[in-house]
């Protein structure tokens, strides 16, 4: 590795840690994207994963995605639970034969040496009922701690993956805490500097955790949210309906879709609004299932549209 200044070393700074991962995956040929500009529960929701996992065209990408889990807020009082945290997401389609090795090398790149750490692949079947998606893989353990999810997508948005994409998700805060040796997420060194120049994770996010916990659990406007859910659902369906048209390409009466991405944005929106409503405790157990099914229906319809777009369809 190039000689990095100390403050950029992954075991010294949170941002250095992220940069090391980005650099590693860039070297594997991934497109390094920036976070999607919408609120979402996990990096998997990013269209670069959900939609790009579909269709036959190769796709390799990596990006940081802020993940919002309104229910996990703890008013900044829990040492490792956050309602907003970062996931680092890698997607490679088709899954390369050496994906496990690449993953282990990525750990080495952020300072986890598999000669002295006990790295394990422990069964974990991944399923997202809201995305109509499932896959098989593992949770990756480092010395007994779950540090990543490793999944071979089999189905996304109700569509069989052909070819299969491999997905890696790193919980960045948790991994960085391990590498930096801190027990409280807010004590993470964010910029790798010391003394007066040092900025911690708490300096950046503690107040946000407190404010959003208050918002998520106590004040989020449920009347508005119910309405937003309804509107997002309606808009998604409207854009989907408007996007279909007969294919102009020669030799086919097949259909194509021209607005899968904007429609999918509304699906993301509905999903996040549902999570907020859930955190406010205004959705009963039985209603919960039906809301999840409604989001899934949107996701499936978007997946169907996507595989009829220029990027998503068979060549």
């Amino acid at each position: 590795m190039d000689a990095l200044p100390d403050h950029m070393r992954p075991e010294r700074s949170f941002q250095g840690f992220i940069l090391a991962l980005q650099r590693f995956w860039a070297e594997q040929g991934c497109v390094i994207l920036q976070p999607y500009d919408m609120e979402m529960g996990a990096g998997t929701f990013h269209p670069a994963t959900t939609l790009r996992a579909l269709g036959p065209k190769p796709w390799n990408a990596a990006y940081v995605q802020p993940s919002r889990r309104p229910k996990d807020g703890r008013y900044g009082e829990n040492p490792n639970r956050l309602q907003h945290y970062y996931q680092f997401q890698v997607i490679m389609k088709p899954s390369p034969p050496n994906l496990q090795d690449l993953y282990l090398k990525s750990l080495a790149a952020i300072g986890i040496d598999s000669a002295i750490h006990d790295i394990r692949f422990v069964e974990d079947d991944w399923e997202s009922p809201t995305l109509g998606a499932w896959g098989l893989g593992w949770e990756c353990w480092c010395d007994g701690m779950e540090v990543s999810q490793f999944t071979y997508f089999q189905q996304v948005a109700g569509v069989e993956c052909a070819p299969v994409a491999g997905e890696l998700t790193y919980g960045l805060e948790r991994l960085a805490m391990y590498v930096q040796g801190v027990d409280r997420v807010y004590d993470l060194n964010f910029n790798g500097r010391e003394g007066a120049e040092k900025v911690t994770y708490g300096d950046v996010f503690l107040q946000a955790e407190q404010e959003y916990s208050r918002h998520n659990f106590e004040y989020a406007d449920t009347t508005m949210l119910f309405e937003q859910f309804r509107m997002a659902e309606e808009a998604c369906r409207k854009y989907l309906a408007a996007g279909w048209q007969e294919s102009k390409s020669p030799g086919g009466n097949s259909k194509e879709h021209l607005m899968a991405l904007p429609a999918y944005d509304q699906c993301i929106k509905a999903s996040h609004v549902f999570n907020l409503l859930d955190a406010r405790g205004v959705i009963s157990v039985t209603e919960r299932q039906s809301y999840i099914a409604r989001v899934r229906d949107l996701a499936k319809a978007c997946g169907e549209a996507w595989i009829h777009t220029e990027t998503g369809r068979a060549v």
Binding site: P94, S95, P96, Y152, A162
Partner: peptide, 8 residues
């Protein structure tokens, strides 16, 4: 499960 390029 299926995997890799052949799963296409």
């Amino acid at each position: 499960m299926r995997w890799g390029a052949r799963s296409a």
